[in-house]
Design a binder for these strands. Structure first.
Length: 199
DNA sequence: AGGATGATCGTCT
DNA sequence: GACGATCATCCTC
């Protein structure tokens, strides 16, 4: 299976637009063990001035990537056990980003399955921590540029354009009512509610 | 130096 | 649906 890199400067900088634009794009992971790739089917926006955003309380060691240029990988560890993969958004100086919550596995399913132990196909990349494990993404990937990086990069949309559903974000305690989660409606690889709900 | 917190996951009922 | 594991990070003393 071959994938074509996203063209430079084709992604929006504004956070919510980026969260929608990423749906359908392919995340490709190349390593010595082989290739693993999946179609992005679920994202969440974390906006400037948003209490749920890691950038809300200013720049720190962990979140510095959010405050750099847009479209860099922001990877952090949560609950001691899982990593979450994000793309920074907004111009240099603003601390915002988009969380990738689920992939539809496309390539390297055996490799993903090895990394994920007992997971079923459906659960390989269904959830932000699971997809990081399936693609072997950890904190050492923080700050890389997925438009040029050889190990972790973004490819053009696979298949038809997504019908986009929208809902509240999952798992957040602050600003819980804001509807900033976006997903491909009806796709069984989405990690939460996947019905088409009014935007 | 110590305590609270958390954008999760797997397991259990 | 509920619960506990587990630890980097940040905040306060």
């Amino acid at each position: 299976m071959t994938f074509t890199r996203l063209a430079p400067a084709c992604l929006p900088v504004e956070t919510e637009s980026l969260a929608v634009a990423l749906l359908g794009c392919v995340l490709v992971r190349e390593s010595d063990n082989g290739v693993a790739a999946g179609r992005i089917v679920e994202t969440e926006a974390y906006l400037p001035g948003d209490p749920a955003c890691h950038g809300y309380r200013g720049k720190s060691r962990r979140n510095a990537t959010l405050f750099g240029p847009p479209h860099r990988a922001y990877v952090y560890q949560i609950y001691g056990t899982s990593f979450c993969f994000n793309l920074s958004s907004e111009p240099d100086g603003e601390g915002a980003g988009v969380l990738v919550r689920a992939l539809e596995p496309l390539d390297g399913l055996d490799l993903m399955r090895t990394r994920r132990e007992a997971a079923t196909i459906r659960d390989l990349c269904r959830g932000p921590g699971r997809l990081c494990r399936a693609l072997a993404i950890d904190r050492s990937f923080d700050g890389l540029d997925p438009l040029t990086d050889p190990e972790l990069w973004l490819a053009r949309t696979a298949g038809k354009r997504a019908r986009v559903g929208r809902s509240r974000r999952i798992g957040v305690t602050k600003a819980a009512r804001r509807r900033l989660r976006f997903y491909e409606a009806g796709n069984p690889y989405v990690s939460g509610p996947a019905r088409l709900s009014p935007a």
